[in-house]
């Protein structure tokens, strides 16, 4: 018996796969234009496929090189968020002092009422912009949800019996209260990462689009759109090409993760 391919999975893979491929392999094959090339050349002129942008850079080359920062920043922000959020959540779950747990949670919850983009924009307003601040800001706004998730996974009812057995067997505290709960939380964290990717991509590309992120000369998709904002009617492809890549990346990733995580929804 042959199974029909899942349409959502196929569409999701295609949508996410193309920009991802462009981001990871693109920099190796991207065409370059020599310095001094005429800005805003129409597509197909002077050896370019999609023309040039306001700085005279090949639009196809920008599309192929600008995804690396999107992927790199997202991976960096996610890694930092999990590196900080996981131990925090484990410590809150492990503490016997209830006030400490409550205080920790309330503190983390404050970050929940700060819109993510607001944090990055305020950082930029005070001169804190660039790769490091983008990663720190984007990671910071993920913390409330992450800490709560890890704390819940480590405190799942099924874990208590295991923990009790470990304590009675004389296992060290760090093993029974930190290492084993961390292992138990890995599954939940993997699922969370699938859905969190899109949130992080959105906040990072939006910050770059608003001029609150990377240097204006960066080929990042968000920055290129921001820098070419005035060329919308003159050379729409300079904006539309990176915009379509961001649309495909976000829509495809969400479709893919949603479908993979919830395959039994329709049964």
């Amino acid at each position: 018996m042959t199974r029909r391919p899942d349409a959502t999975l196929v569409v999701g893979s295609l949508l996410a796969g193309i920009p991802l491929l462009a981001a990871l392999v693109g920099p190796l094959v991207a065409p370059q234009t020599p310095p001094g090339t005429t800005p805003l050349l129409p597509p197909g002129t002077e050896g370019t496929v999609l023309g040039t942008d306001v700085y005279g850079r090949d639009v196809l080359g920008l599309a192929l090189t600008g995804g690396l920062s999107v992927v790199g920043l997202t991976v960096g922000a996610l890694a930092l968020a999990y590196a900080v959020g996981t131990p925090l959540g484990l410590l809150l779950a492990a503490t016997r002092r209830r006030w400490l747990d409550t205080a920790g949670l309330r503190l983390v919850d404050v970050a929940l009422v700060l819109p993510p983009l607001l944090v990055l924009l305020v950082l930029a307003a005070t001169g804190r912009r660039g790769v490091l601040w983008l990663i720190v800001g984007a990671a910071f706004v993920q913390l409330p949800a992450l800490v709560r998730l890890v704390r819940s996974a480590a405190r799942a009812p099924g874990r208590l019996a295991v923990q009790e057995a470990q304590i009675q067997a004389g296992e060290p505290w760090w093993r029974s209260h930190l290492l084993e709960p961390a292992r138990a939380a890995v599954g939940a964290l993997a699922v969370d990462a699938g859905t969190r990717v899109v949130l992080v991509v959105t906040v990072l590309t939006s910050a770059n689009f608003l001029g609150a992120g990377l240097e204006p000369t960066s080929p990042d998709w968000g920055v290129v759109i921001q820098q070419n904002g005035d060329s919308l009617f003159l050379a729409p492809e300079t904006l539309v090409v990176p915009a379509v890549l961001v649309v495909a990346l976000c829509a495809g990733t969400n479709l893919l993760t949603d479908r993979l995580l919830d395959r039994r929804e329709y049964v």
Binding site: S206, I225, V240, A243, V246, A251, N254
Partner: peptide, 20 residues
């Protein structure tokens, strides 16, 4: 599927495509 894809797209990107 449309709802899942739509909710993930950053406003600046969908806005630019619609403007274009």
């Amino acid at each position: 599927a449309v709802a899942t894809a739509g909710q993930a797209i950053p406003e600046f990107a969908s806005g630019l495509v619609l403007v274009a």
